[in-house]
Design a protein around this nucleic acid. Structure first.
Length: 452
RNA sequence: GUGGGCGUAGCUCAGCUGGUAGAGCUCAGGAUUGUGAUUCCUGCGGUCGAGGGUUCGAAACCCUUCGUCCACCCCA
């Protein structure tokens, strides 16, 4: 270990992919605002007991995947493996949960000690929503409608499908679990190795085993649906009716079981087939017992979390297929350069003046010297549509040479320039610095007024 | 935690049954002395992931280890 490198499974997010992260984050931010949700921000570290009591002692997450360490005073702390528990803790601590119905969203990293693979990392990022104090299926449907709209905004709608189930009340699950274990016990031999183990630890999880043989055994097993209590059934029917009314299509998957202990009644997953084994891109459900379980007054809750890495992978794949959103037309990026020491300084001043005159325009200043050729090359590589150059002559006359870098008539047109203003070569213009500033300002004002 | 694939230039990769490394792209410079993206020329760039072993000789074969990818498992 001579070279310094990032901890295994904890990835750097490089400039080549940050645009997709930004698109995801800004889509969530604006949509959550439009649905009346409020943001909450939480510590990354919580007392270990919080996760043991919420996620469930017998789950893999708590058993072997938590980053747990002792604080200097001996208290056991844990890097959060998910954010729901923290939201409940914060809500409880600050009295957010009672006599009101908060609808909260969060975004941030979480940590699980797992072997990394595609779509699964030791530090990963979740964006999620949690709503409290609302017991009915109306809010369940509201959250699903929100996620469905998000896929639309991101262009992912055709790549995901919604799976839905109800896992009933804690009591009904208890009765079903007994029946299931009784049924499977004498068929133990036919089960795959992992499912045999789960028979003892977490029998419900056998239902969504990927083993074909295990699934065949399950064909004759007792159905969870037959054990669901009436109230949960009604709740589920209400949810389905609302989704039908909203035109949101879904598949009821009676074998869909969530991994975390606190879920009850509604559970759902948005799934894609485009990411290999880690196909769940967003998942959630109802957890009416969680607040009480953590020591608060009985308060219903529903929520979901999205896996940012997985969604970003999908957005990148989408872009690679060429379905990128179109760039705005007209001039939006400049590259400003001088041709010597005094000229470079003048160029920097001009760049700042441009930024004042036309805020929001991308203005890149050439730094680092070099020949004209190399400066122009950098201008080209930067993707700028227009290069703005101050040489000895321009400096003496307070002028600039502008050159349109791509064959795009809209660039010159948006500055109000035409062929007649061309100097020497096509697409090249000589004008005074104040005129350039005025034209940019006018352009910007027109663009702003067009947008409303 | 289990199983498999892969680690060679900044990037993508070639390198045959062992004879101490090559291409494309990128980058820098020039052809074109104040104009990029095309073309041509030149150049920079490598403890072959790391450590050990076999051998006269290892990028190649063996062992160990680290990293990475994929799947199981788990889950967002």
């Amino acid at each position: 270990m001579s070279k310094l490198q990032a901890v295994r499974g904890m990835n750097d997010i490089l400039p080549s992919s940050t645009p997709y992260w930004q698109r995801l984050e800004s889509a969530c931010r604006s949509l959550f605002g439009a649905y009346g949700l409020e943001e909450i921000r939480l510590p990354i570290v919580e007392p270990t007991a919080l996760f043991k009591r919420s996620i469930g002692e017998a789950t893999d997450i708590v058993e072997k995947e938590m980053y747990t360490f002792d604080d200097r005073n001996g208290e056991s702390l844990t890097l959060r493996p998910e954010l729901t528990a923290g939201v409940v803790r914060a809500g409880e601590q600050h009295g957010l949960l009672y006599n009101q119905t908060p609808r909260l969203w969060y975004a941030g990293p979480a940590f699980r000690y797992e072997k990394p693979q595609k779509g699964r990392y030791r530090q990963f990022h979740q964006i999620g929503v949690e709503c409290f104090g609302l017991p009915g299926p109306d809010i369940d449907a509201e959250l699903i409608a929100l996620t469905a709209r998000l896929w639309e905004h991101l262009g992912l709608a055709s790549a995901v499908r919604l799976e839905l189930n109800t896992i009933g009340s804690a009591e009904s699950r208890q009765r079903f679990r007994k029946a299931l274990v009784a049924f499977l016990e004498d068929k133990r031999e036919a089960l795959d190795e992992d499912s045999q183990r789960r028979l003892l630890t977490n029998p419900m999880r056998i239902l969504d085993s990927k083993s074909a043989e295990t699934q065949r055994v399950l064909d004759n097993a007792p159905s969870l649906h037959d054990y669901i209590d009436d109230e949960s059934k009604q709740h589920f029917a209400g949810l389905c009716q609302r989704l039908d009314a909203l035109g949101i299509s879904y598949v009821v998957n009676p074998r869909l079981v969530r991994g975390l202990d606190y879920y009850g009644k509604t559970v759902f997953e948005w799934i894609t087939t485009e990411l290999g084994a880690q196909g769940t891109v967003c998942a959630g459900g109802r957890y009416d017992g969680l607040v009480e379980q953590l020591g608060g007054k009985s308060t219903p809750g529903v929520g979901f979390a999205m896996g940012c890495e997985r969604l970003v992978l999908m957005l990148e794949a989408l872009a690679a297929r060429g379905s990128m959103a179109l760039q705005a037309r007209g001039l939006h990026s400049l590259y400003v350069m001088g041709l010597g020491e005094a000229e470079d300084s003048a160029a920097q001043t001009l760049a700042e003046q441009i930024r004042s005159a036309a805020p929001g325009l991308k203005v890149m200043l050439h730094c680092g010297g070099g020949s004209i050729k190399s400066r122009m090359k950098k201008a080209d590589r930067s993707g700028a549509q227009l290069s703005v150059l101050i040489g000895e002559n321009e400096l003496a006359r307070q002028q600039v040479s502008c050159k349109v870098m791509q064959a795009d008539s809209a660039v010159a047109a948006s500055l109000g320039l035409d062929e007649d203003s061309t100097v020497s070569t096509p697409g090249q213009f000589l004008l005074s610095q104040t005129e350039l500033l005025q034209r940019l300002q006018t352009m910007k004002e027109q663009a702003d007024s067009n947008h409303g």
